[in-house]
Every structure is written in structure tokens, then in C-alpha cells.
Amino acid sequence: MREAGAGYLFVLPALVAFGVFVFYPLVKTAYLGFFTSPPAPNLPAHYVGVSQYSSVLRSSEFRDDLWRSVQFVLYTVPAGIVLGIALAVLANQRLAGIRIFRTVYSSTVATSTAVASVVFLTLLNPQIGLLNYWLGRQGGAGLLQSSSLALPAVSVVTIWQNIGFTFILMSAALQAVPDDLLEAARVDGASSWFRFRHVTIPLLSPMIFFAVIVGTIAGFQAFGQIDILTQGGPNNHTLVLIYDLYQQAFQYDNFGSAAVLSVSLFVILLVLTFAQFWYFQRRVFYAN
């Protein structure tokens, strides 16, 4: 009994912190969703029950937001992981000066989203952007102003920004692959692709799984680059769920529908993460 008491005492600080900053806001947000925001600040909010949930979630805007978020994740996560593995494999060679490349490849992890976004904003500027010039688009509309290319462009910036982190993850996992397994495979007659496909990749699978989960969550929550590069434009073509949520709350003072969006985002990520765990469980090999 005394031991249990001491146990609760140890848990208490964490519980308080989580309660104040996570659990209370979560419940409060869900609760806010039952009220429509007043047309002007300082007027009382209206209790509308679940009707606001159903109207927001059934709206075509919500569906479009969600689809853009899903596209963004599909653009950024697989490509980021493939590139991260490719760079990790390159940097895993025993060559003189390879440390320089390792540092370069992992350097984006030390760049903030804001800095990376501003750099790319300049590079993609329709008038003075170097990238824009190289892509033969000088003078015309920039990539970020193109309705079809804005979301892919923001995705590319995101991939670039995340590559350092993915590279570090994959390098760590790659270095944990025992040499003798790869040597055994060489003697067993496996080509380098066969070794990579049937020995290296399976042994990287726990890290790939981790990167998929973390990348998906980060993708759904990517805000900074969109805010700086496009603000959801042009014509809502980069208006992902999280950015719509932000606009509803802090530009239109529509806290009611913002609350609905944030509860939906929470539930979507929760379900998605469980689904990914369920899917990957039988496909990932854990050494222990």
C-alpha cells in the first residue's frame, strides 16, 4: 500500500503536466465543438450539440482538406524514406572523406522549417528565384503559384527538410546490419540488389516502420512550410487540414469548426497509427 502510494507520487508530476497541457485541452476542444462561434467576438457562443460536427465533417471543404493532407503525406513519406535509405547506403561506403558527405546529408536536421521555407521561397520566387529560372519558368507564374504544382512543390521542400532526419535513422539502422550476414549472402551467390532486397531491407524494416509512423503524423501536422510558402493557396490548392484548422481558428475566429477539425485530425491520426501498427506487425522483423 505504501509502495503504491509512493508510485502515484512519482507519477503525479507527469500526470499534472499532461493533464494541464494535453488531457484538459483535448476534452475542452471536443467540448468547444458543440458550440458555434458568434458572428463577432465577445458575443455568447451557441450550443448546437453534434450538429456542428456533422455539418463540418460532411462538408465538401473538409473532404477536400483531408484529400490534400493525404496527398501531401503520400508525396512526402515514401519519397523521403526511399531517398533517406539511398543516401544512407551511399554514405555507408568505406571511402576517404565519407564523413563530409555524412555531415552534409544529415545537415538539414539542423535547419528549422522556417529557415528552409524562406530559402525555398526565394529559390522559387517567380522574378528572382534560381530554381524557378532553372525550371524555365522565369517571368511566368512560379511553381508555388501553380494550382497543379504548388502542393508537389511544398512536398519537395518538406522532403528536403526531413531528409537529414530520415538519413540519420536509416544510417543507424544500416550500421546495425551485421557484416557477416551480407558476406554470407555474397558467398551464397546473391547479387548486390538481391542482398539489398532480401537481407538489408528486412533488417531495416523496424526503422522504416518507425519512419512511416512518425512521417505520417508529421505530414498531417505540417504547418510552417505551408504558412510561409503558400498560405493554403493558390486558390486553396495547398489548403491541408491543419492549415484550414488554423485559418478557421485564428483568421476567422471560428473556434467551433476549428475544434471539430482538430478533433477529427486527432481521431484520424489515432486510427491511422493503429492501422499502420496492425498492417506492419507481420511484415516487420524485430531482432529480439
Binding site: 551485421p178 557477416d180 550476414l181 558476406e183 554470407a184 549472402a185 558467398v187 551464397d188 551467390g189 532480401h198 537481407v199 528486412p202 533488417l203 524494416s205 522483423f285 531482432a287
Partner: peptide
Amino acid sequence: RDVAMVFQSYALYPH
């Protein structure tokens, strides 16, 4: 080279 090697660690593919 068409030789087979048995490693000290056995080097079995764990997955």
C-alpha cells in the same frame, strides 16, 4: 566462385 562458407556466428538470416 561457387564455394560455400559456414561462419563462426553461423550468419543465419534472422528474418
